[in-house]
């Protein structure tokens, strides 16, 4: 079994249009590295200087990874990882 990763519209240019892809890894960081190996360039959209980007939300199952240890959050086979860019802005 693998980890299913949901890809938001704006990042589907990296995944040939796929809404969801499979990846492996024991931590979120490892999953992102595995994604990068298959979809070069995607990691930079998620990670900046070793930390998750502030305006990208990543969830493991239903939990925001900020509450699970961020890039070090543990993932297990069968988990769902969802990536959603923040909807944000301001004057």
């Amino acid at each position: 079994m693998a980890i299913e990763v949901s890809i938001p519209t704006i990042l589907r240019t990296y995944t040939d249009g796929a809404k969801s892809v499979e990846a492996t890894g024991a931590t979120l960081g490892a999953v992102i590295n595995d994604l990068e190996a298959h979809f070069p360039g995607i990691a930079d959209r998620l990670v900046d200087a070793g930390s998750l980007r502030r305006f990208v939300n990543i969830y493991i199952n239903d939990e925001d990874v900020r509450f699970l240890g961020g890039i070090d959050a543990e993932v297990a086979d069968g988990d769902n990882v969802t990536v959603l860019p923040a909807v944000a802005g301001g004057a």
Binding site: N57, Y59, L84, A86, V87, A88, G89, G90, A91
Partner: peptide, 15 residues
């Protein structure tokens, strides 16, 4: 953000 100069959807609400 409850701010006069910024907005952001709550992360749980967004999901």
């Amino acid at each position: 953000a409850r701010s006069p100069t910024f907005y952001e959807f709550d992360s749980k609400d967004l999901l």
